[in-house]
Structures are given as C-alpha cells and as structure tokens.
Design a protein around this nucleic acid. Structure first.
Lengths: 203, 203
DNA sequence: GTCTATATTGTGATAGAC
DNA sequence: GTCTATCACAATATAGAC
C-alpha cells in the first residue's frame, strides 16, 4: 500500500472515487464530491477543469484495479493448482475491500466501450502466457485440456458473481441478512477453488 | 411470445426500454425516449406522469426477465444433468437476445438495493426446491454433494460473465473482433455445461 | 390524445475577490 | 489556493390550445 499525502488533490480523488463508484458518472454530482472532500465546487474545477477529466482519472485507476493481474501469479514457480488458489484468494479479497468497483467498471464500460481500446493498450496484457501454461500442464497429464479463453473467464465469473448480484442473492438466499452474506462471501473462496479443481482434474 | 398491440403506450414502453437499458436511469433522457417513440415529451408525461414511474414499469419487467426461472425447469421429470443443460442453453439464449439487460439490472439494483425487497415478494421465488433436488441426487450417488446456494450462483456466474465483461474480453482475447466474440458466446453453452458436469460428477 | 410553449429547478462551469 | 456569487444551459414537468 502506497502512503498517500493528505493534500487537497488527494482529498478530491478520494471523494470522487467514492461518489463515482457509488453512483456512476451520470448519477454523480460535483456538489456531492465537493462536500465529501470538505471543499467547494469551484475548487474541483480549479484542480480538474471538468467532470469528465476528474472521471477519467478515477476510471483509469479503477479499471486497472478491477482487471486481475493474472499474469503476475502465473509467472512464478508455484505449482499450478496453488496458483489458482492464490488468485482466487486475492481477487475475492480485493472485491471484499471494493464492493462497488465491479458494477462501476462494467457499467461505465458498457456505456462507452470505446474507452477500453486505449486503456488496454496502456496496460499491455498478454493472454498467451496462460495459454502456454495450460497446454504444458495438460501435456504433463495434471489437468484436462482447457482453453485459457474459457478457463480464465470461468474463474473470474465464479469469483465475481456473488459480488455483482449481491442484492439479489442476499435477499433470496439469506432473507436480507448482511452478516450471513459476508460469511457466504468468505465461504466462496474454498467453494470456487473446489469447484474449479474438480472440473480440471482428470477422472 | 405475446403479440403486442402497436398503440402509443406500447410504443413508449418499447422506446423507454431501449433507452433505459442502454443508458441507465440517470443517463436516460425523456427527450430521447420521446424521439425514439416518435412522439413528444409532453405525451410521455401524459401517459406515465414522471420519469420515475416510467422507469419503474421498465425495471420491474426487466428484472423478472433477468431472474432465471430456475424452479420451472427443475420441477420437470427430465434427468438432472439434462435440466442443467436446458437451463444453460435457455439462459444464454436470453442473454444473447438482451445483451444490455444484465448490466442495466445489476447497476440499478446497486444504486438502489432497497427496490429489490418489494419485487422479490411479488415474484415469490423459493430457493428450497433446488436444495431438495440436489440432496436427493447426491443421495442417489449421481453427483457430489453441493449446496444449492453455491451451485446456482456458479452456473449463473459462468453463463453471465462473458456478457457483462464483453468489452474487456472482446478487446483482450479477440482484438475487438465482434464476429469472433459472437462465436465465442455460442461456444460457451457447451463449455459451461462441460465445466459444471465435470465439477459435479464423482471421481 | 396530441401538440407547442413555458415554468422551474438542477448542475457544470466561470468570474473575481481575498 | 480557496472562497462566494453567478452564468448558461439542460432536463423534468406542466399549462393550455387544438
């Protein structure tokens, strides 16, 4: 965790992140961001010129946080299934700390898919790394053959769904009980791991 | 499919659905809905009094469409794994026809989770039906033991993710190629089915 | 039922003093 | 850098003619 200096700019960015993530671009109000940051609207424009520019700063950072750095874990020397476990664990941890992040990113991307082209270029993801690892593991006979373009979305989908659909699942499965749902989210770590390994291991 | 009379009210509802699903409540403009419906703003208010009321009509219907009717398939006499296949197939078909639906529902629910309480009551879902079926199948030795509160979200998460994250996956995996992504989405039916059955079948 | 015109409020952005 | 006051426009909603 990088220690942030508490100056006005960071106060604004903090407040903007909270407000944008909760309400989206269209639902967010510059006044609310200002109040949240303990300043006035004029100062927002002094620092960021426009709502758009302020939003861009928030979105770019949010997106890179949301996009799992699958490559990083994969490049290490750890056994394959252990990599999977670590990935699930850290991704669910991140989602627990940032519950508004996924819907925010997905909604804004949906409203303006063009945005992503530029961002992806800057991030520089390489989907081939995982493909190679999967092929090599399958050759060794450790797992069934499976294409990375399916496995990776499978894993992320399994982690993500209980967070994005929280209001629905919490209402239906747990009668709205918040605490029960938080335990459920933690259970998911083991559950998702078991589900994936079961699907991957040869019969 | 119920045949709709083409009167002004239905023209408005059609237009409103398109505009709300694409832009969300905050991003939608009454003017755009009016233009899309081939009428003027005043007439919108004549039929629905306010933007809120018009939105409610759209959201309630969208939600019930999004919420998979898991119970329906489950009550039939078909073999268990076949039920799973049918569910996946029909849910992915629905998503293909309504690509904007999930993000719309999830975003609006996220902005106002309180909404769901009322809607769930009216829908009357019973999560216990599936629990019972799963237990009976596990007893027969057909599948591993698995709690419905995990299996159902697993299945839906696997179906849903490639739709809600389409801009990201299409950009990274397929370099933005639309046609390639559409084939990918169809592949998912078989892929998700195989993944789930692999995870469910005893070793 | 449908339209044009208008009232009213909300909101991003700027001017200008300190 | 920070504030108050204000502009300019956009958007929901209503009035009233036809």
């Amino acid at each position: 965790m990088v220690e942030q200096e508490i100056n006005t700019e960071n106060k604004i960015l903090d407040a903007a992140k909270r407000v944008f993530l909760k309400n989206g671009f269209d639902g967010a109000r510059m006044q609310e961001i200002a109040t949240e940051a303990g300043i006035n609207k004029a100062l927002l424009h002094y620092y960021f010129r426009s709502k758009d520019k302020l939003f861009d700063a928030i979105f770019t950072e949010a997106f890179s946080q949301f996009l799992p750095k699958v490559g990083e874990v994969m490049m290490t020397d750890i056994p394959f299934l252990e990599k999977i476990r670590i990935f699930i664990d850290s991704y669910i941890n991140m989602l627990t700390k940032n519950p508004h992040l996924p819907i925010f990113v997905l909604h804004e991307l949906h409203r303006n898919p063009g945005r992503i082209v530029q961002i992806i270029k800057n991030t520089g993801v390489d989907p081939n790394i995982i493909s190679k690892i999967l092929k090599s593991e399958a050759k060794k006979g450790n797992i069934v053959e499976m294409d990375a373009k399916h496995l990776v979305p499978n894993i992320i989908g399994l982690c993500l769904f209980p967070f994005v659909a929280r209001p629905i699942l919490q209402a239906i499965i747990f009668n709205g009980d918040e605490k029960a749902y938080e335990s459920y989210l933690l259970e998911r770590k083991e559950e998702v791991y078991k589900f994936i390994t079961n699907a991957l291991i040869k019969k």
